[in-house]
Design a binder for these strands. Sequence first.
DNA 1: GCGACTGATGTTAGCGCTAACATCCGCGTG
DNA 2: CACGCGGATGTTAGCGCTAACATCAGTCGC
Lengths: 350, 350
Amino acid sequence: MQPQAAAGRPLVMADVAARAGVSHQTVSRVVNGHRSVAPGTRARVERAIAELGYRPNIAARALVTGSTRTIGLVTVNISQYGPAQTMLGLEQAARAAGYALSVTILDDATAAAMREAVDRFVAQSVDAVVALSTYDDAAEALTAIDAPVPLVAVQVGGVEDRPAVGVDQETGARLATRHLLDLGHRTVHHVTGPADSQEARARIEGWRSELRAAGAPVPGLLAGDWTPSSGYAAGKQLAARVRGGDDVTAVFLANDQMALGLLAALHEEGLSVPEDVSVVGFDDLPEAPYFTPPLTTVRQDFAELGRRGVQLVLARLQGEDLHPDPVPPTLVVRGSSGPSRAGSARPERG
Amino acid sequence: MQPQAAAGRPLVMADVAARAGVSHQTVSRVVNGHRSVAPGTRARVERAIAELGYRPNIAARALVTGSTRTIGLVTVNISQYGPAQTMLGLEQAARAAGYALSVTILDDATAAAMREAVDRFVAQSVDAVVALSTYDDAAEALTAIDAPVPLVAVQVGGVEDRPAVGVDQETGARLATRHLLDLGHRTVHHVTGPADSQEARARIEGWRSELRAAGAPVPGLLAGDWTPSSGYAAGKQLAARVRGGDDVTAVFLANDQMALGLLAALHEEGLSVPEDVSVVGFDDLPEAPYFTPPLTTVRQDFAELGRRGVQLVLARLQGEDLHPDPVPPTLVVRGSSGPSRAGSARPERG
DNA sequence: GCGACTGATGTTAGCGCTAACATCCGCGTG
DNA sequence: CACGCGGATGTTAGCGCTAACATCAGTCGC
């Protein structure tokens, strides 16, 4: 696999040219798949390349072409399932398109950090930057940044003048809410994500409008922050209200991790899911089928999101102005949701 | 790719030089912090750089220096907590050291895929490659690869002639096993990771040697593959044995996700944790405290692992031959492990 | 007071590649 | 049969930067 032969200095095009008995330019033509090269010559050059194990020096190529064939990714929270999965899709699509992916993980989602990251990428001469963030200040910085390269946002809704691709959060939230309503629940409570997250707000919006459309009362929000711990707190709160006689029979949480926390709290408080309270999450973590009980949730296709992000980048690089549709989420029904006030058998794991 | 969109064509060193009234070489000296530049000149050049918004072209620099100040990371399974967290530490340490991080996510952990990834990085002229994989064939490929750049392994134990940094898996497994033994359990069952994972084997080793040291019987292994589903299957199996009268009171699983699956299975089978069976995992996922019941587990400091990985790379780049100590794991005791009910109401086979 | 030395700067020569132009050849056409 | 055309190839000129050497003061030592 070594790119240089046993010889001391690294191989360059001229070495291949000498071996194939052609000029270095012909080698360049072969390497770049240029058309006007005689088949015989091309074969000879290709053999020389293979025999020598030659690899073009991409720094030299980048210098003259002005393109590094690298996409910069700036993201937050890589240890969460969603971003990690999106990154996976992004990387694979980028690789398939012949681009390398350079990554910056933001310590915190501030505008300054976002700017600095994009800045560093520009200095690094990436061909384009993909930003994965759903927080307001970061998103704001994104609109403000005037980078000399295409800059696309993934998973950010509501950014007007910046190409973006995302999952339709609102539809997802409506799916979840509708599901609970259809099961006969009078209304559905909602545990939110952080207030400065656009996704969290879109989910609130979807939940609220579905309730309104069904003529159901719209209860007050329970504030969460994506963490299991905040779901746990919300669970304790709801349990107290149930015990106080409140009519709380269905909860929709803005993500699965919070749902896990809520499940733990309800369990501790002696409430059964779904008999006493039905619970629906959002994301469909790989662990969700193994929660106690298995979690009904809204699945987002994060990898697809990443793929579309790259698509968008490539389009921008061509100068096209693609406006991709949002990725549709789907509802996955498992054991944590059931009919209102009616014991039922647990559906099997998904 | 132009550094700044101030004028029509991209800025180059000569522009700064002209503005500062010096030669482009002096600008280069200032940019690279060379010492023999008169303070006045340096100030003038720096002002010109700031005013123009000049950024050096790193492709040109890379071409002449032969260094891209980029580290390549090849990893698997980024959607798992461990690798993701390790990557976080890696990225931050790399950034702090002035290196960019280019990422390849392996579709599958085969030797061929590993080779190809390293190969691509070499073609990309990265300064070093960090590999994050614990699977045999990938690890094997790693030893075999003769890259023209430093290649360090993170989280791979047992690779002899290749610089590596990892967590002390064996100690972690002993910690978990000892904990259960100390609680009075006669022995501890073990659900393994995949057989071709070095980490999984190290955990088996630790578990086995701790049992032996305590003079406890060593039960047969339950094969898992890191997934919740395999933990679930193991749980079903164990539950059947408990019902059959077997003396199964403590289980140590090679990761937390499998523990989640096992918890779900035991719950379904009407067994209580920790009353009937004590359960200990490995990793300490952020979700682990919210399992039902909260999971006792072994914590690994993945981010630290990443940081040490970069340390190792930098040392290699300097030509030093650092041999870092493994990162020590710690036991986190929560509700899923408790005292043995030796001589309990469960019927015993004669 | 003059050669050797030191520090600040300029000049020159590539790094390995691609783009543009130059060249050569064989062929069809009037 | 001269002409021109286009396909195949070679030649030349940079891309923007750094390394190495050249230059040119000043400064020091004896």
